[in-house]
């Protein structure tokens, strides 16, 4: 499977899913994101890379308005998903987040059973008409997150009892169970060991068939492995955005080059 990665990387003709224009983010007095504009395509994995504190996670959290939950955070500019302004007054963030799922840095299963963790989203969004439909949804999500075989016998055991890699895949299953159109991943592998990381990376590549995936990562190797497009952030600016291959082989901006060659980190 790994061999296929490269070949797929040059598929570039996808529709634009998320369009951001002149996005500014302030945390109180701090100007965290400075005038970022970017087009993120459907059925593509887009990686955000950059040194710590460069604003890549902050920008990610703008896309499903998770920043709304922080009192001092203020977002300006324009982010459109399918050409609808998600910061429009009429948009309910709850509805938006059903459409734009998110996986977090640290696995955060709820202190409930594995089944209830996955069923949580479909339940609150009313995606099933009855129990057997819900069962189907849960099974499908767990299969898609490549964890079904490991947990099929203990669906009613607590989700917190799984290993770190399993927990993270459970969280991915939980996110895909609501059938989102965009999946945001905030350093999903940073708390995982190499084997679990490889599993999750393969999973991300599979998910690309159905979703637009945006992944924030610290690891350039990971970005190179899983993404087709890469955006490099530095001090709140979007420095360079383009084909992953091109960013890693022939960056245009000297700052990108310094980062990739390990001079700023």
């Amino acid at each position: 499977m790994r061999d296929n990665f490269r070949a797929e990387n040059d598929v570039t003709t996808n529709a634009v899913k998320i369009a951001a224009r002149n996005v500014q983010v302030y945390y109180g007095e701090t100007h965290a994101i400075k005038d970022v504009s970017v087009d993120i395509e459907d059925k593509t994995v887009t990686a955000f890379i950059g040194p710590s504190g460069c604003g890549k996670s902050t920008f990610l959290r703008c896309i499903n308005r998770m920043n709304d939950t922080i009192d001092i955070c203020r977002v300006e500019g324009d982010i459109r998903i399918d050409d609808e302004d998600i910061y429009d007054r009429r948009v309910d963030p709850v509805q938006l987040r059903a459409k734009v799922g998110m996986v977090f840095q640290k696995p955060n299963p709820f202190p409930k059973s594995i089944y209830d963790n996955v069923a949580y989203g479909p339940r609150i969004h009313g995606l099933s008409r009855n129990k057997s439909e819900l069962d189907d949804i849960v099974e499908r999500a767990l299969k898609r997150a490549a964890i079904w075989n490991e947990v099929r016998d203990r669906l009613h055991a607590p989700g917190t009892g799984l290993s770190g890699g399993q927990q993270q895949r459970l969280c991915i299953a939980r996110a895909v169970a609501t059938e989102p159109e965009v999946l945001l991943m905030d350093e999903p592998c940073s708390a995982l060991d190499p084997i679990a990381t490889a599993q999750v990376e393969e999973l991300i590549d599979e998910l690309r068939q159905n979703y637009s995936v945006v992944i924030v990562t610290h690891s350039m190797q990971q970005a190179a492995r899983v993404s087709q497009k890469t955006a490099f952030f530095h001090l709140g600016n979007l420095v360079e955005f383009g084909e992953t291959d091109k960013i890693f082989t022939a960056p245009e901006d000297p700052r990108t080059e310094s980062y990739i060659t390990g001079r700023i980190g």
Partner: peptide
């Protein structure tokens, strides 16, 4: 990744979210 090969392509019955600008019932 054997799980995935058994997954039906979600073309069959994929839930679709409507426009974000309309508040669903």
């Amino acid at each position: 990744m054997t799980d995935l090969t058994t997954t039906p392509t979600p073309g069959g019955k994929r839930h679709s979210y409507g426009s974000l600008l309309d508040e669903s019932p």
